[in-house]
Design a protein around this nucleic acid. Sequence first.
DNA 1: TTGTAAGGACATGTATACAAATGGAAGCTA
DNA 2: TAGCTTCCATTTGTATACATGTCCTTACAA
Lengths: 213, 213
Amino acid sequence: MIIRAAENIFESLIDEIMAGRMVPGEPLVEQTLAAQFGVSRTPVREALHRLEQARLAERGARRAYVVRRMAPEDLAELFEATGEVESTLAALAANRMSEIERRRLTAVLDEGDACDDPTAYSEINSRFHEIIKSGARNSILAATLDELNLRTVAWRAANFREDSRRLASSRVEHRSITQAIVAQDADATRRLMCSHVASSYMVLADILSRRAP
Amino acid sequence: MIIRAAENIFESLIDEIMAGRMVPGEPLVEQTLAAQFGVSRTPVREALHRLEQARLAERGARRAYVVRRMAPEDLAELFEATGEVESTLAALAANRMSEIERRRLTAVLDEGDACDDPTAYSEINSRFHEIIKSGARNSILAATLDELNLRTVAWRAANFREDSRRLASSRVEHRSITQAIVAQDADATRRLMCSHVASSYMVLADILSRRAP
DNA sequence: TTGTAAGGACATGTATACAAATGGAAGCTA
DNA sequence: TAGCTTCCATTTGTATACATGTCCTTACAA
């Protein structure tokens, strides 16, 4: 093996969960996975431990691993936590971003306005959030946000995509957030970002509740 | 072994780091630790991986583990992140704590005012922060705060204790925070908690910078 | 029928041996 | 001497065998 097997397996399992090919509650048996990946139990074991740390796997009966299940309340907490951390980053960014970064943010915003393809818009949306994250000048909070976002992958899996109505309001929200950042108004930025993230997740929560009541 | 060896070793290593018996940069060799704990490399290996996840260990030369070192800038980021998350929890708690919880918070505050022993005060201080953490009604953010606090253990190690001047201002700050929470003023709570945590860490940072310039 | 205890299947936990990789040191060359 | 190459020591990575623990099944008795 060129690179570490445990690392590959960890990434592969995350991909499987993200793609929805492994659903919450599905067993993750060391022996079975080892056979599938063509390695021994040892690296699989390590990958499963890492999945557990990342809260993507949990222990079921007989200490066996399963893809993590989450009650709706837990999901709500997770969404709230994500929103709060991202809002904090945005508030810090409002105070700390350079003129160049503010211009880049505005540019990405304009690019998003000119884009109608949902897939492309999703990529632009990521860039928007990335700029804010790095503008906050705190890599630890940024990493914390990444970890929280990673935990939602299993729930974003089922080919969730923001519908066009949500896309329109998302544009408006990004616009207000950007204005608050450019005005270096940290409080407004926090408030706006918080409700922006809340709205985004509301749509997802709605879909999930309709599918698994 | 009655309970899991890997778990024991993980806890033990954290204790060693907390106590300052293992200092940043010190090598953590699987073979050596295995011999010390009287087990094989396997559980030690697992414990080290967990330490790495917790950001208490890092990889040095030849992928060997060492107790994590941190540059002063990283430490500043860590303190800021901790303060922001705790402030967020406090702001949520201001909106969500029950009347009973508010009374308990006030009671702990009074207990702290009547206490002059630094060790006892430290314990009361912990209870104060615990009440706020649980009052926020978000276990994920609470766990995030715990994880961030855990990362500072190696830096709190060197029998750091708040001096009496700091203790006096800490009392005053706790009083204002409690008043803001009782008044259910989330914004004021956030602001006060943020500066409270910042002041606490300032003392530690000051000590650290004088010891290792 | 229900409660309980023994046995067994299944999955993880641990021990050990061997493989691989990484950095550094020794030695060679220009 | 500087720079390169080769080799080796050290440490982690992986494979495999065996140990342990937990739950479920089943048999038996009240």
